[in-house]
Design a protein around this nucleic acid. Structure first.
Lengths: 148, 148
DNA sequence: CTATATGCAAAGACTTTGCAAACCG
DNA sequence: CGGTTTGCAAAGTCTTTGCATATAG
């Protein structure tokens, strides 16, 4: 078994009260390594490269566990199916290109403060939040220009 | 047929290039009247009160059309199914109670400005955005206190 | 009469569950 | 052993489609 890469993840899982099985380590590793927002199918594909017999159900179950324990975040950009990312150390928001699907993360501490204010005004105590901006990225914008 | 209420909606639909059928008027009316974020099923239930034979598929098809023409907005709060609301005149964001599901709308013009800045930094041109804050509303918070 | 809209049932896409076998301690 | 985890297949949920009928202009 691949020990080197999995060791820290093993601890990571254990410290969150998750029994660190090989499958879970692999799923988490894929997410951490890619640093991307992957769909269950994509994760399945990547993990299957190492463990051809792993089932999609296990991926979903694992993601559910990881999400529950706060190791992974689930997103539903636009109307799409769910995408997952390894939980970032600090919260960040997302810029999503509606043409090519690219996701860029950004951080705007001031926005967070304003959110707090808005919540207070409405007597809500914030648990989490999500800010997604949909737009056209530079690359796609350039393509448009060429076309016209 | 109920004319009074539907007349303005008829125009509304027509002006957006949508053939104003009775079913569409009813769906839109339900959304406009409720001013809420309803699921397809809920809308179906409400419209069926007037037209028992209407199918869920029609609701979905109608919502798809209305959304496409910008009369209705689709949301996917949390991991739930889609919810729809009649397109508000001005954009607003949402506070969602994770306990009781209540949705409160709010508006923070400053946040929008900061979003613009973030997008600019990353060379995105904004098309739309979504800000959702998940938390606990006052009512639910009080219930918690009582329990403990 | 042609085109669009609708109901119904069937299909689809994504996700969850039931269960027996495999694993781990 | 005794509790977890897994694969597989089946079931579930929400949503979309196909098709024949109904409706509208």
């Amino acid at each position: 078994m691949p020990a080197a890469a999995g060791t820290d993840l093993t601890e990571h899982l254990r410290s969150h009260g998750i029994h660190p099985t090989q499958q879970r380590i692999r799923v988490l590793k894929v997410l951490v390594d890619s640093r991307a927002h992957l769909s269950a199918e994509e994760i399945h594909g990547l993990v299957r490269a190492q463990t051809p017999r792993i089932g999609l159900a296990t991926i979903y179950r694992t993601l559910h566990t990881l999400k529950e324990k706060g190791l992974v975040e689930e997103h539903r950009f636009n109307d799409e199916f769910s995408r997952y990312e390894a939980m970032p150390a600090s919260h960040h928001d997302h810029l999503i290109c509606i043409e090519c699907g690219k996701v860029v993360e950004f951080d705007q501490p001031l926005i967070e403060q304003l959110q707090l204010a808005a919540a207070k005004e409405n007597h809500f105590s914030i648990v989490s939040h999500r800010l997604e901006i949909y737009g056209i990225c530079e690359t796609c914008a350039k393509l448009h220009k060429k076309e016209s």
